[in-house]
Design a protein around this nucleic acid. Structure first.
Lengths: 336, 336
DNA sequence: CTGAAAGCGCTTACAG
DNA sequence: CTGAAAGCGCTTACAG
């Protein structure tokens, strides 16, 4: 069907090895031969088969990158950061859409073996034994991104320092003079870390703890909106003197705002609200939401760098990385 | 390094061909042998190399799918629809992030050749000769998704029927009693189609044409917001008696709302606004935006189906497909 | 500077 | 029901 290296060789009367050498940029080749070969490649419109090359080189230069949920608005930034660095280093990325399913992840890992990926960046929602087992069997470098595997697993990770970030946000609110600060918990592992920071902060400062957790997993805006709404309602009922709310995400914050709007309460007039994520709509004048930026592109890049170190420098146990976030102050929070 | 089919064969004392046969589910194999082989596979933890298999089969079962912009919130739905159908049919998807760059697309097509993809679903922002040329050289089935290639190219496409959709929206607004309807043009090919429908509608009904086009390409909310804002300002200045605005997208509609809010004008009290896309935030009570749903998952699926027909049924010239959209009526539009 | 040969890990007619 | 052999399209020591 398509043109092979043998066709090129025959066309210019040299051996297949010679063509292969010019293809791979070897320098010990007479200019004349090289030019003949290049011409032939052009004329025959020859494109070498990666499949064949992979097989003989026993290298695929493919990295698998897991997408937790293809609708996740953050994965894109992570991916962009990772992709850039990886491509600069000659690797291609094979994306796998997990749709929040552990089974799909297992399938992807299986695929990674079949396709002989050389490394993996994954973002699993849960770390069970089967997953960890499969990862070990893979025997290729794996880095966790935005998730923290159990210490014992030996899988290194890159994540934001959610604890520190939450502490900073609480400090910011507290510095504004707020002492009755409620917290809407994001019902995920990350959310739990933020809640811990929240609680620690309250204890240290001796201010009351008012954290509300609504159970539904809430990734999409409409679900999170409901959760934020319900949480805000509870806060309003149970702790009517609350002056500030630290919501686990912008989505939850917006949900809370929906409730307050319904009640005729103003933000920040009656209550200050802060979120996390810096969603694109957070800056709209209706919300003007104080929030945190998570530097996701940088995270993706850092994960890719870690993986490259593991692959190329054979560094088997790189240190986990926790990146800083930064507060973005807008109008939804004011001094009390 | 890793265990090969030869190891498995030796382990159970049969030939490589036999192992290969059980691997491929041939039935003319004694149960005993088959079981021996399966056991060995388990014990040795053997996973066949896809690379080798691809090479000998001369089939990769890989479909390339282009992501126009990894931050594009729609691609995800398209992709989800395509991925599902393709995987059901035994194909894997290789995603390529184009970042709105024509050069990257060309690179991806090159990669597609090297990797011997068997089909391609692409969403290019522009159809130039170089692109079309490259596509033809590829000599594998290609389907355009959400973009319409020139007739002469012979590349079939799947898209929404933007013309019809815009007509329906205009009809809806008109049926509400509006006769002074402005249009904010989305500055892309799709936007031009909507504008055409808008103009045709105005002419047919004999109502004035008031379309405003702001040049900046506006994919992200913050850019589109600016554009919508500016366009609304112009509309307000030039056509102060306008009672309804049909914005080319929800993002533009929100931008328009920002302007109106600034001017102390109410939606829909002073002016009705409709968008297109049904973004997740369109339903928030601050906007409560009437809009159109574009059935993107279905589109992705349809594109995949078309591609499968081309690959497997050797149908070289499938008919282009235009899918319907549906209006979602909310509170931002009212009778006049 | 170049070629012949073996090999990468599979699949698949071809025999038996 | 099973094996030996050739082939997929490259790469890479090994000679010369």
């Amino acid at each position: 069907m398509s043109v092979t290296i043998r066709d090129v060789a025959q066309f210019c009367g040299v051996s297949v090895s010679t063509v292969s050498r010019v293809l791979n940029g070897y320098t010990d080749i007479s200019e004349e031969t090289a030019n003949k070969v290049f011409d032939a490649i052009k004329k025959l419109d020859f494109v070498p088969s990666n499949t064949a090359r992979m097989l003989s080189k026993k290298k695929t230069r493919i990295i698998g990158l897991t997408i937790p949920d293809i609708k996740d608005p953050f994965f894109s930034e992570n991916a962009a950061g990772a992709e850039k660095l990886l491509q600069e280093n000659g690797y291609e990325i094979f994306y796998g859409n997990m749709e929040r399913s552990g089974e799909k992840l297992l399938n992807f890992l299986q695929q990674a073996r079949q396709m002989r990926f050389e490394g993996l960046i994954i973002t699993p929602d849960e770390w069970n034994d089967e997953l960890l087992d499969t990862i070990h069997k893979l025997s290729i470098p794996v880095v966790a991104l935005r998730r923290r595997p159990p210490q014992s697993s030996g899988v290194p990770y890159v994540d934001n320092d959610h604890y520190k970030g939450a502490m900073e946000m609480m400090t910011y609110l507290s510095d504004l003079g707020h002492t009755k600060i409620a917290h809407i918990v994001l019902p995920t592992g990350i959310g739990e870390i933020r809640r811990e920071a929240y609680r620690d902060f309250c204890r240290i400062r001796g201010i009351p703890e008012r954290d509300i957790r609504i159970e539904t997993p809430a990734n999409k805006l409409d679900q999170a909106k409901e959760n934020g709404y319900e949480a805000m309602k509870q806060i309003h009922k149970q702790y009517p003197d609350t002056t500030a709310v630290f919501a686990g995400t912008d989505q939850l914050a917006i949900g809370a705002m929906v409730y307050l709007r319904e009640q005729g309460l103003s933000v920040p007039g009656n209550i200050s609200i802060a979120g996390v994520n810096d969603m694109d709509y957070a800056s709209l004048p209706w919300f003007d939401l104080t929030t945190m930026s998570l530097n996701r592109t940088e995270m993706g890049r850092a994960a890719a760098q870690m993986l490259l170190d593991m692959i190329e420098k054979r560094q088997t146990h790189p240190e986990n990385l926790l990146l800083d976030s930064s507060i973005i102050v807008r109008g939804s929070t004011i001094k009390i």
